[in-house]
């Protein structure tokens, strides 16, 4: 099955966007993002802390619905999912 991952802002600079990837059934949200983010250590560091958990300000969405960071490890991705990962943009 295939899912699409969209990074925004700083995450997009480091990891690209509109990444189509094949995933195995039952793969959890957090494992998927971890795998993709590991392609660039700086990108990984921007999203995950040293313990490998999502940084608290990271926003995760699955098909337009918010996924709580705490639930990311138990939320499976499904065929055709569109996943958005973004930071709050702070400058002004």
């Amino acid at each position: 099955m295939t899912v699409k991952i969209r990074f925004f802002a700083r995450f997009r600079e480091l990891l690209g966007t509109d990444i189509m990837t094949d995933v195995v059934a039952g793969m959890m949200f957090s494992s998927l993002i971890t795998t993709i983010a590991k392609k660039n250590p700086e990108g990984y560091d921007a999203i995950f802390d040293e313990k490998g958990t999502f940084r608290e300000f990271v926003i995760l969405m699955k098909n337009g619905k918010r996924i709580d960071i705490a639930d990311a490890a138990k939320t499976p991705v499904e065929d055709g999912d569109e996943i958005a990962v973004f930071p709050p943009v702070a400058g002004g």
Binding site: F8, A9, R10, R12, E13, P88, V89, A90, G91, G92
Partner: peptide, 10 residues
């Protein structure tokens, strides 16, 4: 609300 960074904004 508005926020910016680099070439990105919201």
């Amino acid at each position: 609300h508005g926020g910016i960074r680099g070439f990105y904004g919201q």
